[in-house]
């Protein structure tokens, strides 16, 4: 006995009711449950669909699908950050390293020339904060559009919105004034650390937004060619 199209839709609903909101995760679970139910029907054809589903779902343990979803989210976020690290490393190889080192040197030089660091730190923080806010709004709009086109939520979309967790660095920016005493004089080390840290931060943001997020979207597009993400 085979699962019908209508029962497949019921399985999608079932996964959604069990806190799996993303279609890219639901799809695998639906196929697994469907295979399990069909195998059960071969042994016990008298079993009702709901009974067979209950038996198969129990095999996922007491936490149901939550472990699968959580670990998939963690694995994909980690993958995103690893990709950011991989592409950021390219900015420390020739010829890109010239631009990287020049940016760090230029910022450092500016810090040594300007006595009141507020003139540099505040616009920089404001720019980075505004950029991240713009990105969040842009991604949220994109997520909405994709949901409208496909009628579904996608995990990869959430990961790109969060920049694989790097978006939480926005909190760190808010602590910069406390960490670097922007009203007082800066030691040489402060100036070096701030210059390197800021350029690194901007580089990582750039890599995430311009390289890794589109790459992840492209991977999703290849996996699900029947939907349009790009």
């Amino acid at each position: 006995m085979k699962i019908t199209e209508q029962q497949i839709q019921e399985l999608y609903k079932f996964t959604a009711q069990h806190y799996v909101e993303f279609y890219d995760v639901q799809t695998e679970l639906v196929d697994h449950l469907a295979n399990g139910i069909e195998a059960l029907w071969q042994e016990k054809p008298e079993l009702k669909f709901e009974e067979a589903l209950h038996i198969e779902f129990k095999k996922f343990g007491v936490f149901g699908f939550s472990d699968v979803v959580e670990q998939k989210y963690n694995a994909l976020s980690k993958h995103y950050r690893k990709q950011v690290y991989k592409y950021t490393k390219q900015y420390f190889k020739l010829p890109k390293i010239i631009l990287t080192l020049f940016s760090m040197w230029a910022l450092f030089k500016l810090l040594t020339v300007v006595e009141n660091k507020n003139y540099i730190v505040i616009p920089l923080i404001a720019f980075l904060f505004a950029f991240q806010m713009w990105y969040l709004i842009f991604e949220r709009r994109k997520r909405k559009n994709i949901k409208q086109f496909t009628g579904k939520n996608w995990l990869f979309q959430r990961i790109t919105t969060e920049l694989g967790g790097l978006v939480h660095c926005v909190n760190f920016i808010l602590y910069v004034p406390d960490l670097f005493f922007i009203d007082g004089p800066w030691s040489l080390w402060y100036q070096i650390v701030f210059s390197i840290g800021t350029v690194l931060y901007i580089l990582m943001l750039y890599v995430g937004v311009n390289i890794v997020s589109p790459k992840l979207r492209m991977e999703a597009q290849n996996q699900f060619p029947q939907f349009k993400f790009i």
Partner: peptide, 29 residues
Amino acid sequence: TEGALYPSLHKLEANGLLEVEVVKVDNRL
């Protein structure tokens, strides 16, 4: 167990050791 299999598969995929292909089989993906 299903609860152990899928997290392992997803980790291997995220680490670039596995690649994924989604195919329509019967009435499902």
